[in-house]
Design a protein around this nucleic acid. Structure first.
Lengths: 180, 180
DNA sequence: GAGGCCATGTAACATGTTACATGATTGT
DNA sequence: ACAATCATGTAACATGTTACATGGCCTC
């Protein structure tokens, strides 16, 4: 049930409408915890009914601004401090690696090279972000930098791994060819 | 719809019953594509009805052995060669990092240290696997080695990052303390 | 004959995605 | 007046988890 906590976390920083919240998901959490519009509106209703959020203002176009309640903060803190992260790791990219022998070596190398390029391009994007964002030394900025650095290191590792893996297959192929 | 392809991939190697398939998921794919028993049996039925699998033998206790059909192989190959992996990465671990400022620096450091230790312990387990498994140079073994190497590099990166991140917070804290 | 493993399946629920539906407000 | 954006919500469907239910076979 992490969607709920992601929302509580964002609203702990400042109150927002569902629409605002969606935009905040898209900008800061897309790569960490994506959410769809229907999910957000649905969960806002449930959280309000449960007393973890409350409507603090109503604006034009039926806009409802939600703020976290003390109960909501308690729940958020409980989640952060007293529960362990669920690490369910599902990686379609890696699943495909298990079946790479069903492709020709050429196709397999192409797959891995594409992965390497994708990682490299993500890394370049993140470097850009690192340059452009003003790191204003607020507490929020610290968290963001930690997460960004994770992304940087992950994409670097992925690129290196994919290039190495492509070479393993390319090398095997070359050796096989050499035998005959 | 990757569960279906994971199953086709395993059955492309050799026919299995639902029960066998479950065990194969648990041993080779737990870290990449976990599946529950109900999912596997449900999907076996659907795949058979769709003609991608067929029952090739029936044994004691109602055991049904499934084998991949040519249509199944075609679907598997199509998936591997002509579709791009969906990379939706959801990381509860990283989500928590975004809200780390809601904890005391001590608690935040504890969280990151736990992460570092978890990564280190996973890495040690994988090193063990690397030692113990006989890499028999079959094509299946090549794929497995690539995936294992990914796990090794990922856990190493995670440990380093978590230690670095803990130091960032610990360091900030020390600096703040120094000011007063 | 008893315990452990083999073996399959269903039901209820939680979570997540896509598509549809509706309409107000603002800026040009 | 028109387009873009703001704004909320529902419905249908896909996927995944947990719990329940049932019973056969094999070894000691």
């Amino acid at each position: 049930m992490s969607l709920r906590h992601a929302m509580l976390g964002l609203l702990a920083e400042r109150p927002s409408s569902g629409y605002d919240l969606m935009k905040r998901f898209e900008t800061s959490l897309t790569n960490v915890w994506p959410a769809t519009q229907s999910q957000v509106y649905g969960e806002l209703g449930k959280l309000a009914k449960a007393g973890l959020l409350e409507v603090v203002a109503e604006g034009p176009r039926g806009r409802k601004e939600y703020a976290i309640t003390p109960e909501g903060r308690a729940e958020l803190r409980h989640w952060l401090a007293e529960t362990r992260p669920d690490r369910s790791r599902r990686s379609e990219m890696l699943l495909r690696v298990f079946f790479l022998d069903l492709l020709t070596p050429l196709e397999a190398v192409a797959y891995l090279s594409t992965e390497a390029e994708r990682a490299a391009s993500l890394r370049a994007d993140l470097e850009q972000v690192k340059e452009q964002v003003q790191w204003d030394d607020g507490p929020l900025s610290v968290n963001g930098r930690l997460a960004l650095e994770y992304g940087l290191r992950l994409s670097a590792m992925q690129e290196e791994w994919a290039r190495w893996a492509a070479e393993q297959i390319g090398g095997t192929q070359a050796a096989e060819a050499g035998k005959s």
